[in-house]
């Protein structure tokens, strides 16, 4: 099925559209290149959430980043959710939509958390068909995100990088590469973050996520509650040099700072990107 063609890969910088910034965001749109919204926080809401979303979408690009598609889950995909999502994305004309390479519901229960899949051929088969269905249903490019995960299955036949590559290739979808998740997972599961980045399908990466994490009880936890750590900034620079430019989003979902704080942190990311040695001809910075 034909999907809306994604834009050319380019280096742009955005933040999430959060309720905490509803009063100010419309006055600060010239300081971001795009905004990302969680559709679950807007789909069924009227009032201020609805008005602000439509107001900003009329002035800057917006992307949709879902958390409840449950691409890897055992239950049938939620057609009600998909229909509501399609209607909203058509109205806002987003360049793509994204969700996670994991599952968030099972047996009729919404966990509101992201559960990992085993890295097996069986799981690839399972999730590929669901990604294809969702992408066809929405009619826009679907970006799947590599999630952070804190438990791994002993019967996994593939490495995480192999799993991601296999899914993205067979489903013919795109990738939202969360650089913080790569760092956290590499630390927690004992692999080389740079080797993982280098193994990613560069031509399919249209977006990056950057976020903060904390030290948990014996492992790192991806909390989206902190500034981006310097180690993750370094990995982002390496990612840009290896994978190439892509829209880059600062994710911050807990202990959300003021808009000034968000813009300042986004500036750190811009500065890191500016220090990256990008291959000639790959840099197309947004006007």
């Amino acid at each position: 099925m034909e999907h809306r063609a994604p834009p050319q890969k380019s280096l742009r910088f955005g933040i999430g559209l959060r309720r905490e910034h509803f009063d100010d965001i419309a006055d600060r749109l010239d300081e971001v290149d795009f905004l990302e919204f969680l559709p679950e926080n807007f789909l069924r809401f009227g009032g201020r959430p609805s008005r602000v979303l439509r107001e900003v979408a009329a002035r800057v690009d917006v992307t949709s980043h879902g958390v409840s598609l449950s691409l890897g889950g055992p239950d049938p995909l939620n057609k009600t959710y998909l229909t509501e999502l399609r209607t909203l994305l058509d109205e806002l004309d987003t360049p793509w939509f994204s969700d996670h390479l994991s599952y968030s519901s099972a047996f009729g229960v919404e966990y509101h958390d992201l559960l990992p899949l085993p890295f097996t051929a069986e799981a690839v088969d399972h999730v590929v068909s669901r990604i294809q269905f969702a992408q066809d249903f929405i009619g826009r490019p679907l970006l799947v995100e590599n999630p952070s995960y804190y438990m791994s299955y002993p019967d996994s036949e593939l490495t995480e990088a192999e799993f991601v590559n296999e899914v993205v290739s067979r489903a013919d979808c795109n990738l939202l590469l969360d650089v913080n998740n790569v760092y956290v997972n590499a630390q927690n599961h004992g692999y080389d973050a740079r080797a993982f980045i280098a193994a990613m399908p560069a031509d399919r990466v249209l977006q990056y996520h950057m976020a903060g994490h904390i030290q948990g009880d014996g492992f790192l936890v991806d909390t989206h509650s902190m500034p981006v750590r310097d180690e993750v900034m370094d990995l982002y620079r390496y990612t840009l040099e290896t994978v190439g430019p892509a829209w880059t989003l600062l994710e911050w979902d807990h202990a959300i700072p003021s808009l000034d704080g968000m813009i300042a942190e986004l500036s750190r990311i811009r500065e890191t990107a500016a220090s990256a040695h990008l291959a000639p001809g790959t840099l197309e910075v947004a006007a």
């Binding site: 889950g73 055992p74 899949l117 085993p118 097996t120 069986e122 399972h126």
Partner: peptide
């Protein structure tokens, strides 16, 4: 869909049992 994925099915079931207490 689950029926063709027996090992996935096991994983989903085991995790669900813990998440639901």
């Amino acid at each position: 869909m689950i029926g063709s994925n027996p090992r996935l099915d096991d994983a989903f079931g085991a995790v669900h049992a813990v998440l639901r207490g």
